[in-house]
């Protein structure tokens, strides 16, 4: 693998999950505020060096979902889908996993390069909440790590997992939610048409689902982004296949 590469890692999560604490703990004081394509909301960026690589961490706005109900949600969603970070870290609050998982499942519909961080495990332990992360990992089909951003525990494993995902040593099979037959029928009607337009650049099942959900502004955004993409020449992450979840 090449050295001195810069990889973009996006942090997504609900508000109050300690996402920013994790971001701060990982990046230290090497931060600045960057403007992203939307340019309405600026996102904090910082970098981490690990094994000769540089990870540029992008702290997405804390949101409850990614259905573009608000500017923050739209910014977070657009970043994950259109800017295609090499890895998306979804930070979950161990003390309210049920609600937090909603967001993880939504991210997993958008990209397969997902790592789930279950944060605040110290807090959860105090409250008598036990989380079986191996089982959770098998259920979700993506790496799951327990961390405590406050106490800076679980970071080595997290950085190592990021490293291995970037090197293509981990391949994921994100849990795909099955909707009822009627919805699935409509999705499969739309997917071929979406594919025809956007090819493999953007996740077509997810786009179909958003369209069915009445998210009309999404198509305008896609059109805009496709033209931008033709002009710029960035490298998207190369998905590798073959290895399985058992590898990690």
């Amino acid at each position: 693998m090449t050295t001195n590469e810069v990889y973009r890692i996006a942090l997504a999560g609900n508000p109050n999950t300690g996402k920013s604490t994790l971001f701060n703990a990982l990046t230290g004081l090497k931060q600045h505020t960057g403007n992203w394509a939307g340019k309405t909301v600026s996102l904090a960026e910082g970098s981490v060096h690990y094994k000769k690589n540089t990870y540029r961490l992008i702290d997405l706005p804390g949101t409850y979902s990614l259905y573009s109900n608000s500017t923050d949600e739209e910014v977070a969603r657009n970043y994950i889908v259109f800017e295609k970070p090499h890895v998306t870290l979804v930070v979950l609050d161990a003390t309210s996993l049920e609600r937090n998982l909603n967001l993880a499942l939504q991210v997993m519909e958008m990209t397969s390069n997902v790592i789930v961080c279950v944060n605040l495990i110290d807090e959860a332990k105090k409250r008598g909440i036990e989380i079986d992360e191996l089982k959770l990992m098998r259920q979700l089909g993506v790496p799951v790590l327990k961390i405590s951003a406050r106490n800076k525990t679980g970071f080595p494993a997290l950085l190592d997992t990021i490293d291995r995902m970037i090197r293509g040593e981990i391949s994921t099979s994100p849990y795909a939610i099955q909707y009822n037959d009627e919805t699935e029928g409509k999705i499969s009607q739309l997917v071929p048409n979406v594919k025809k337009l956007v090819g493999d650049r953007f996740p077509s099942r997810w786009i179909a689902l958003r369209l069915l959900d009445g998210d009309t502004s999404l198509l305008d955004e896609i059109q805009k982004r496709m033209h931008q993409e033709e002009e710029s020449t960035w490298n998207t992450v190369q998905k590798t296949s073959g290895s399985h979840l058992e590898n990690f």
């Binding site: 996993l97 049920e98 609600r99 998982l101 909603n102 499942l105 939504q106 008598g128 909440i129 036990e130 989380i131 079986d132 992360e133 089982k135 959770l136 259920q139 979700l140 849990y175 939610i177 099955q178 909707y179 009822n180 919805t183």
Partner: peptide, 17 residues
């Protein structure tokens, strides 16, 4: 569906005392 999925996964992986 999303919510039910979360709930199912949680019920299998989280224990409360």
């Amino acid at each position: 569906s999303l919510y039910q999925t979360s709930q199912q996964i949680c019920s299998r992986t989280v224990r409360f005392t």
